[in-house]
Design a protein around this nucleic acid. Structure first.
Lengths: 171, 171
DNA sequence: CGGTCTTGGTTCAACTTTGAAACAAACCTA
DNA sequence: TAGGTTTGTTTCAAAGTTGAACCAAGACCG
């Protein structure tokens, strides 16, 4: 089929999207780097752990929640562990497993950083949207996210290196 | 003021947004890496140049359009130049200036990669949205983008390292 | 059991990004 | 026009990311 180029409307939407997303992520990274000494992803790792039962999560589960590669997570957790914000423990049920646990110190850092982070998210995003737009935002990205369920929906329609595993959380 | 935490709706929207944006960017990067041997940003650089008059743009202008730091752009252009897709020229009007020009080879690479890229953008985003949602998407991110006009709207409300310069395009 | 395949994590090298510092050329301004 | 400031760009080291390769340890199967 001959390429279905973007319509003018789609093009405008795409450009606005690309530009703003980059700006928002950068601003978030800078804000957290300043106030908590870590990039947004690292903050998200702490946040995810804080919400998990016992503040613990297996590496693979954590990687999946955050939609990042295991390799990237390994690197990040190693750093957070050095900073004393996260601790690695062995999984007793599965000796291959490694469990990341949020330390008390990590929890404190997270709690200290949270207000500023939320404030920034508001300033960048929600304060600029109407309540209806917030709803639309959710619907749009929920729909987009669903495109990644099960299949890859991109590049090579085959070879997907990340498959969801069974939910044996081992906690 | 005590922190205005996110409401449940906002929280859902935020999470859907964060997750999907990451997935989309990753998918885009992989697709372009496979088909064109370069990440999305590099493709965008070529695309921006291709639309500029004479396919030339000053580094700073280019950086601004793409919302990236000059340093990041320098690195990227150096790579693209090595690959022969972009050429650097001196600006005659302002000897400090450096102008990036898309080479014919760069144009060819861009044209070869474009169909696949657009197809991916569709598969990931537009094919999953209704026409109304496309409109909403544009409005939402246009609004968000406007938050970055002139002020910094984030982290340190002062020190903004990027100011818009006068539009002497020097072409 | 013994062999094989899969899964959970880490490692490593190549690449990219970041932010501060360094430069050099324009621009004032007294 | 000398001296100081701003602007355009690059450089450099530290930090982060990527993807392939590797190493166990579970799971399966005959």
């Amino acid at each position: 089929m001959t390429t279905r180029w973007l319509t003018p409307e789609e093009q405008r939407a795409w450009r606005a999207y690309i530009a703003s997303v980059a700006l928002v992520e950068d601003a978030l990274d800078r804000q957290l780097q300043q106030e908590a000494g870590m990039p947004h992803l690292y903050y998200s790792i702490l946040a995810s752990l804080s919400e998990a039962p016992e503040r613990r999560l297996r590496m693979t589960d954590l990687a999946e929640r955050l939609k990042i590669t295991r390799s990237r997570l390994t690197y990040a957790v190693t750093r957070l562990e050095k900073d004393g914000l996260v601790r690695r423990e062995d999984c007793r049920w599965d000796k291959r497993g490694s469990i990341a646990t949020l330390t008390d110190e990590g929890m404190r850092v997270l709690e200290r950083a949270a207000p500023g982070h939320v404030e920034t998210v508001r300033a960048l995003l929600f304060d600029r949207l109407t309540p209806e737009q917030v709803g639309q935002l959710e619907e749009i990205f929920t729909a987009v996210g669903e495109g990644f369920q099960g299949d890859s929906a991109h590049a090579t329609p085959e070879d997907v290196p990340w498959r969801r595993r069974s939910p044996k959380s081992c906690s």
